[in-house]
Amino acid sequence: MSYKIVVLAKQVPDTRNVGKDAMTPEGTVNRAALPAIFNPEDLNALEQALRLKEQNPGSTVSILTMGPPRATEVIREGLYRGVDNGYLLTDRAFAGADTLATSYALSMAIRKIGGCDIIMGGRQAIDGDTAQVGPQVAEKLGINQVTYTEEILSLKDGKITVKRHIDGGVETVEAPLPVLLTVNSTADPCRPRNAKLLMKYKRAMAPMEMPQDGTLPYAEQYKKKPYLTVTQWSVADVDGDLQQCGLAGSPTKVKAVQNIVFKAKESKTFTASDGDVEALIQELLANHTIG
């Protein structure tokens, strides 16, 4: 039995490695100072998808991402690891989308791809930590969902059995296809890039990444090798309703953004010397903080 699998991946600013220049003096986020990376849990999802492909010959894995043209980087990263093809969903009309508008756009693209059996993504993205897009895409497609996936135990007879994390434990659930899974960081890590695939796909680009003035290097290669041109879709390409995309389709609005500055308390500072540490312990014991 072969399956059509789609992995949802997001390019995110690396919020785990935030330097001092991450915030502008005006208190807004300086995106330029943060490296853009493949959302970590989406990599865990990608690994699960690639394993299903290997275990079920004839299956295909596609990677779908929404973002600016440079987000094609996550598609290339997928191609280097064994996905069959990628789709970049890009349009100015998608800008400013909250989770609901994002899931609408992704669900329209999945409909356009058509006939998907399994959709997978990371549990959440590190820039928002909401964990909402997965379940919202499942709802928009009217399919089942299994969130917090740790491991896929079996896939047969149109049913998938999954071990998932729950509060205070684990559970094993069985869900009929089609299904959307979100995968945790505690699932197995993603395989590294494959050297042959890296050579094959290193020039893969979405049309919007290519120079428009005829100066595209190795232009003849893109004619000979259609797989080097990544499929790129706009709102119109996926038959999207503009009212449900981007800012217009987002019920949540940001009222205020604040760069929290802690109010400094009166604090006593000690060094790490023996004398200082002992003095501190004596003070803490004397005022019954500890002991």
Binding site: F262, K263, A264, K265, E266, S267, K268, T269, F270, T271, A272, D274, D276, V277, E278, L280, I281, Q282, L284, L285, I290, G291
Partner: peptide, 27 residues
């Protein structure tokens, strides 16, 4: 440190063994 009542400037590896030692001694 902005919200700390007590700040010890030093590495965890250096300070914690001392805290343990002097807690044992003084308590």
């Amino acid at each position: 440190n902005q919200l700390a009542d007590y700040v010890i400037v030093g590495s965890v590896q250096e300070v914690l063994p001392k805290l343990i030692k002097y807690y044992k001694k003084n308590s």
